[in-house]
Computed example of a mutant assay.
Amino acid sequence: MRTFDFTPVLRPTIGYGTFGRLFNELERASTDSSQPSYDVKKSADDKYEIVIAAPGFGEDDIEITLTQNTLAITAKSEAEDSSENGNVEYLHRGLTNLSLDYRFDLSDNIKVMGAEMDKGLLKISLQKEIPEALKPQTIKIGKPGNLIEGKAA
């Protein structure tokens, strides 16, 4: 029996058509709830922002890597040393040692503009840059130069 890895297909995409949204919704329904949540916002036709909940992480803990068209955000929290406070008994342990591991597929014309941390949220700014060669061009319709008073010469 063969097993198939659909991870690359289910990875969130930015700057592509709406077809990927179907897969993104399927992924959200099946992802582990221990992973912090994220939003992808579109603020204009050419501006996007990825907002990732990063509780307990600082700027130095998170690594953002862009390779070809894949944006990877990774971080691992340091495990609390339980031997340091051996006399502590947890009555409820709700703070887990979370790690971040996100991969976003970007289209060729999406550029990463920067990232910032604000109140436990990692915000990554993206912008769509269309090259001049791919932008629509207006072509003027000219009149033939060899017509004299609407008649051919």
Score class of each variant (00 low, 15 high):
45 D>H: 08
45 D>S: 14
46 D>S: 15
46 D>Q: 10
47 K>R: 10
48 Y>H: 09
48 Y>L: 00
49 E>K: 15
50 I>N: 02
51 V>H: 02
52 I>Y: 04
53 A>I: 03
53 A>M: 06
55 P>K: 03
56 G>V: 08
58 G>F: 11
59 E>G: 04
60 D>A: 10
61 D>C: 04
62 I>A: 07
63 E>L: 01
65 T>Y: 00
65 T>F: 01
65 T>I: 14
67 T>Q: 12
68 Q>S: 11
68 Q>M: 04
69 N>G: 12
69 N>W: 00
69 N>L: 02
71 L>E: 02
73 I>V: 15
75 A>F: 07
76 K>N: 11
77 S>C: 08
79 A>I: 12
81 D>V: 02
84 E>H: 11
84 E>I: 13
85 N>L: 12
87 N>L: 07
87 N>T: 09
88 V>L: 15
91 L>N: 11
92 H>A: 09
93 R>C: 02
94 G>L: 11
94 G>H: 13
96 T>R: 14
97 N>Q: 14
99 S>P: 01
99 S>W: 01
99 S>M: 05
101 D>A: 14
103 R>F: 11
103 R>V: 12
105 D>L: 13
106 L>Q: 07
108 D>I: 06
109 N>A: 01
111 K>R: 15
112 V>Y: 09
113 M>P: 04
113 M>T: 12
115 A>D: 15
115 A>S: 15
118 D>E: 12
122 L>P: 00
122 L>M: 09
126 L>W: 05
126 L>P: 15
128 K>V: 00
129 E>M: 09
131 P>H: 13
133 A>C: 02
135 K>Q: 13
136 P>G: 05
138 T>R: 10
139 I>L: 15
139 I>K: 11
140 K>G: 03
141 I>F: 14
141 I>R: 06
142 G>T: 14
143 K>M: 06
144 P>C: 10
